Computed example of a mutant assay.
Amino acid sequence: MPSPTVRVIFDTDIGSDVDDALALAVLLGSPEVDLLGCTTVYGDTLLRARLAKRLVRLADRSLTVVPGAAKTLTDRPVWWAGHEGRLFADLDTEEVDAGDAVSYLVEEVSRAPGQVNVVAVGPLTNIARAMTVSPTFARDVRHLWIMGGRFDDAKPEHNLKCDPEAAAIVFDSGAPITVTGLEITTTVRLDGADVSAIAGAGALGEALKAEIEQWWRFWKAEWNSPHDPITVLTMLVPELFEFSPEGRVAIGTDGSSTFEPGGGRTRISTSAEAGQVAREIVRRIVAAAPRSWSA
């Protein structure tokens, strides 16, 4: 019997850490996923949208990609690595879709209440704005799958500390949420052998290899933790993970995050089968290669 279709919108700050691009490729390589669209957030969201469009096109696919909020809710300074989009000299030729991300999110979720998942792997500005604009968004979304936070200590994590005001709105919304923090994602690594396998997946694989190596140079390492693809797999292959009971996540003014069981609809990832997760990420990225391509 075929797996049921998982309807997804991908909300991302693609272009800085390579894990966003890898997560997009995992979604493209997952036959059970009906990827409705992609929204970008944080900083130069037009550039981020163009990069997403290019990677999708390299997979011989098409996808609605809508730029979203460039600024945080309180106009906090935006962190920018500086290498975003640099591997594509003609990226400004990519045409993104008209509209704005918040309207797109609200329209897609309200059109099919209880059916659309949102995978949010950047600062939560777009999601918070959607909840503010539409009082029913939190009720209508099927599930939010969030990469963010750290639940084994009080150290703030990038996605939540970039816009803690937005994170607080999202986690206080009552929406069903699964959040995967750094204490889980950092248990998984991709290394040179994984990158070699990814590079064999046609033009998309070659582009991802270059993006990975760019991030490694920036990070001064020869491995990376695929935070965002791991979050995608909590949705698609939950048997590779363990989760807490439902409870509440509180966000500090510095973006720190704490979890308390009970009284809410949020659960956190508590463990991952690290080796199997890494292999599944690579397998699905390779499966995203264009159908016309063969090794």
Rank of each mutant, 00 (worst) to 15 (best):
F151D: 06
F151G: 13
D152L: 14
D152S: 15
D153E: 05
D153F: 08
D153M: 06
D153L: 13
A154W: 09
K155H: 02
K155T: 03
K155W: 06
K155D: 03
P156K: 04
P156W: 04
E157A: 10
H158A: 01
N159H: 02
N159C: 07
N159V: 08
K161Y: 03
K161T: 01
C162L: 05
P164Q: 14
P164Y: 12
E165R: 15
E165I: 12
A166C: 13
A167L: 10
A167I: 11
A168V: 03
A168Q: 12
I169H: 03
V170L: 11
V170R: 08
F171V: 05
F171E: 04
F171H: 13
F171G: 09
F171D: 01
D172M: 01
D172G: 15
S173W: 01
G174T: 06
G174N: 10
G174V: 12
A175H: 12
A175Y: 13
A175P: 06
P176R: 15
P176C: 09
T178A: 11
T178W: 13
T178H: 10
V179N: 08
T180D: 08
T180R: 11
T180N: 15
T180W: 10
T180G: 14
T180K: 12
G181A: 11
G181R: 09
L182R: 14
L182Y: 03
L182E: 10
L182Q: 01
E183C: 09
E183L: 03
E183R: 03
E183H: 14
I184L: 00
I184V: 15
T185P: 02
T185N: 04
T185V: 11
T186C: 00
T186Q: 02
T186L: 05
T187A: 01
T187E: 07
V188F: 03
R189I: 04
R189H: 09
R189A: 07
L190F: 03
L190E: 03
L190I: 06
D191Y: 04
D191R: 12
D191G: 15
G192N: 11
G192Y: 06
G192Q: 04
G192E: 00
A193R: 08
A193N: 11
D194Y: 00
D194A: 05
V195W: 08
V195K: 07
V195S: 06
V195L: 14
V195G: 05
V195A: 09
S196D: 08
A197S: 10
I198C: 04
I198G: 04
I198V: 06
G200S: 09
G202V: 13
G202Q: 11
A203K: 10
A203G: 07
L204I: 07
L204F: 05
L204Q: 10
L204P: 08
G205W: 06
E206F: 02
E206I: 08
A207I: 11
K209S: 15
K209W: 13
K209E: 15
K209H: 15
K209D: 15
A210W: 15
E211I: 10
E211R: 14
I212Y: 02
I212C: 00
I212M: 10
E213C: 01
E213K: 02
E213R: 04
Q214W: 02
Q214G: 01
Q214R: 11
W215C: 05
W215G: 06
W215H: 04
